[in-house]
Nucleic acid binder design. Structure first.
Lengths: 352, 352
DNA sequence: TTGTAGGCGTTATCAT
DNA sequence: ATGATAACGCCTACAA
């Protein structure tokens, strides 16, 4: 047997030996295995795999060959233990099945994946105690947190933000970066729209008492209604769900208002279903407006007039802000998320 | 100063000292800190926190007091490095924004949380290469995997299942535990329903070619139609989305069928929108049926007749099966998921 | 019941 | 450019 042949066969042999040893110990390949196969020190393997430039080209080559030969996957726990970085990001939402969060989730997931991060989604189920627990459980294993629909008091949020990078969507707390929809602009458009249609008495169907954005919407509606000279009342708080909207029908009708602005589309849809059940025509007797433009808003009949925010973009930006913050990069002031009134069939002229 | 007073004040003092040391090194409390404060060995702390019985009551008491005093959270990476268990479960879906998966996600999330696990959700975006990548990235940091809408070939799945516990929903591969809907029962109900309404020619609007469950639905429909003496044709494959349904309208109309069974509700809804756009009355000229009963199915007009499966239960059961499998517990045979025909307005008598 | 000691796989800090 | 060595925080035989 020639030397060439011997060496050609000895390399696969060594790989096989190492492979069977790995299998024997019932685990995955480590940098030690690679080091052995490539004939270098483990620390060299770590560098070759970690930093591009810091190693000679030929060594890097050998290491990479050995790594793929042994099907090496880095052990994230071991890396995290040493570096303190887990490569994971948390996204906390109040209710996963609420269509509002679909887009946030998708945007966040894509941005995280693009940055090489893994997104962990957790649900608080509209309970702040639950949310605290969930966050405490998540915190040690993530590099940062996006709070999409938090029900936490500001003090708690501030406390969490001292421990990890936190970015909020549609919520504001001092010293905590956030992404907030341009409520005023959307609300002004809604109130203008209703005023133009001849409505003079409007109900705001409030969301949960702990929802920061519900309060902002109410304030903006209140202010806009005052300047337009419309009568405005707040009804609520209500659960931010279809059932929450349904349950509010009595109080809505009792108000004699000719238009309703619901805290979100889900409530608007619930209310419209209840109105249909009672034979109250929308928009002939009552106009209905929602927020968010969720999936389903254009499916319902009449299709829902609503205030849209690009929540997918919000999810993306929240993640990239979190990552920046986690990297201690300077985060400049953040422009509010643009907002857009989408007029569909659920609003019409006030009854005369 | 009495001894009692001295010791009473010295305890908080020591805690403060340790706390400031922790802060100084910019990290979290470790079992060493607790050990110091409680005056025991770190291993005792580990045991006290880990196993209830194995330690004297008074020591356990002291340790727990010290732990909460220092606000201790266990470091998951360190634990995972040692135990090989990460406390995380992966859920892989084709498309996060598809309403079908939201119930699965919710069920899985709740079950995982109840078991003290964290759920990581990953999206393959309907691409099998993408899915492979995503899974490779997830695998090292997860104790098990639920494949909810996988687009992977059986061989790949089998390979993954040799490395970690895998449970699939609506997909079957040898040697890999799975949870499958009782397709036949639901489909028989649908075909009966249509036959009773006088339909004699039916189209099945197929889903993605890589969808296992789409093929099963087609087979079941084919068989049921044959026994009922109905004409049946498959149209597709199509994207399992609203747009996929919309795009199929020409071929559906060309078939002259009086009823369409779509692979899922999203496609059914898209088709109905397209039909409405063309002025084709549903159900007067064409009846439409979907699968899944997603949010929105009862919102659209006419409301969609559909075959429902309890996907939230599927998510829950998939997670608990994964956990069992990961714990090497025996997993008995699994009953198929019950299925239920929900008749709404989108189906009616065949035109004469 | 509790302490001692070693190791899990990686990165970082020294040397060389 | 590469090697040796010491952490990172926790768990678990083994000893006492």
């Amino acid at each position: 047997m020639s030397e060439a042949a011997a060496s050609a066969s000895s390399v696969p042999d060594r790989a096989d030996a190492i492979r069977s040893r790995i299998r024997a110990r019932g685990g995955a390949a480590t940098i030690y295995d690679i080091a052995e196969l490539a004939g270098v020190n483990p620390s060299t393997v770590s560098r070759a795999l970690g930093k591009p430039g810091r190693i000679s080209a030929t060594t890097a080559e050998r290491v990479h060959a050995a790594a793929s030969e042994l099907d090496f996957r880095i052990n994230p726990a071991a890396r995290a233990l040493q570096t303190g970085k887990t490569g994971m990001l948390g996204l906390v939402v109040a209710d996963i099945t609420n269509p509002v969060v679909f887009d946030v989730v998708r945007g966040a997931e894509h941005e995280a994946a693009a940055a090489g991060y893994t997104l962990v989604i957790a649900e608080s189920q509209e309970s702040s105690e639950n949310e605290s627990e969930v966050i405490e459980r998540l915190l040690p294993s993530v590099d940062g947190l996006v709070l999409a629909t938090t029900r936490l008091p500001p003090a708690t949020i501030e406390d969490i933000a001292t421990r990890k990078s936190v970015v909020m969507i549609n919520n504001a707390v001092e010293n905590v970066p956030s992404l907030v929809a341009d409520v005023e602009s959307g609300v002004n458009d809604v109130v203008d729209h209703l005023a133009t249609l001849g409505h003079s008495s409007v109900v705001f169907l409030a969301g949960p008492p702990t929802s920061w954005i519900s309060a902002r919407r109410w304030e903006a509606i209140f202010a806009a209604a005052e300047t337009k000279g419309l009568a405005i009342v707040e009804v609520g708080p209500n659960a931010p769900t279809i059932d929450g909207g349904r349950a509010a029908i009595r109080r809505v009708l009792a108000s004699r208002a000719t238009a309703v602005i619901a805290y979100n589309d889900l409530m608007a849809i619930g209310l419209m279903q209840a109105l249909a059940g009672e034979g109250v025509a929308v928009p002939e007797r009552i106009s209905v407006v929602g927020f968010d433009d969720i999936f389903g808003s254009e499916l319902i009949v009449p299709a829902l007039t609503t205030v849209r925010t690009d929540l997918e973009a919000a999810g993306r930006r929240a993640v990239s802000m979190t990552l920046q913050d986690a990297a201690d990069l300077p985060s400049g002031p953040v422009a509010p998320l643009p907002t857009q009134l989408i007029v569909r069939g659920s609003t019409g002229p006030a009854p005369s």
